[in-house]
Design a protein around this nucleic acid. Structure first.
Lengths: 164, 164
DNA sequence: CAAGATTGATAACTCAATCTTC
DNA sequence: GAAGATTGAGTTATCAATCTTG
């Protein structure tokens, strides 16, 4: 933690191989899950993320920008996406009582239905393609790695911010 | 390996938590790397993948469909993307001598320059955000997990195929 | 003027034709 | 007719305005 200033070696070829295998595999996995979700439940990954976040929210409703933060999207992307989901009857938007500028996104009944029906096959896919593929030890290691990477990312976001 | 037929429990909440943390973190990491690549080198991830594959190819040229297979894209996506890269002078396309139907994608001089200039900051980013974040043990575990997931994915692709 | 959110223009991705050559 | 590759139409993502309210 004290070597922040010192420039370091570039990655070895073994390290790079690990990196490429890791990122490409996870992307392939994510792609495969997205296809299954689409064909089994007619939802895109984006739809699912939005519906999941709303399902977990108090009163099945959230401020638009909070939703964007939770799922890690830019606001304009979310806004366009919500427009399409609204057309399909999955969500609706209400003006926010407390803050006249804001909007609240509400899970519609049809969205709730779609989400519930999608959940079982989707969790089955997650189990088949991820959880069952790994030993309990590997799963624990995955958890550890993800947590470490996440904290590192958050920290580096902070430090680049403070340089501005 | 003998329990293929038996339906199984749905994931525990701890397993799901691991899954979400894992996939979301990797996606955040990938997104962060893509932003850095774009701002530091004016290349998208797709551009980089194409340039990397061509740089590693014999004579800096490849058949179009082989390139698509290597980077795991659909042919039409690659074709559109190559059109845009060609406009920017990064690659060019030659008719293939051996097979009149085919096209060969060639790394242009400007593409080679851009790729070389992009490499150092990009590898630095990979090191900072991934390699240095993990201990050697975690890196080894990541390698193991990726390999296991990859084999599992390949295997499940095969078995769904044979059911048709 | 800053923050919340939407809009519009442009770029990129996907899917189903299409065209050419084997 | 099948394989290699491109094209076009429709959908989704991104970036820079824009509009409205605090």
């Amino acid at each position: 933690v004290t070597d922040v200033q010192r420039p370091r070696r570039s990655p070895t070829s073994a390290e790079l191989w690990t990196w490429r295998e890791f990122i490409e595999t996870v992307e392939a996995l994510s792609w495969r899950l997205a296809s299954r979700l689409q064909s089994e439940s007619s939802l895109s990954q984006g739809d699912y993320q939005v519906l999941l976040a709303l399902s977990e929210a108090d009163g099945h409703r959230m401020r638009s920008s909070e939703l964007a933060a939770v799922i890690g999207w830019e606001r304009s992307r979310l806004s366009h996406h919500l427009g399409r989901m609204e057309k399909r009857g999955l969500v609706s938007r209400d003006p926010c009582a407390a803050d006249g500028r804001g909007a609240e996104v509400v899970l519609a009944a049809h969205g709730s239905d779609c989400f519930r029906r999608a959940t079982i096959p989707h969790l089955r896919a997650v189990r088949e393609l991820f959880i069952d593929a790994l030993t309990p030890e590997q799963l624990a290691a995955a958890d550890d790695i993800a947590g470490t990477l996440r904290r590192h990312l958050d920290q580096s976001r902070e430090s680049t911010r403070s340089l501005r």
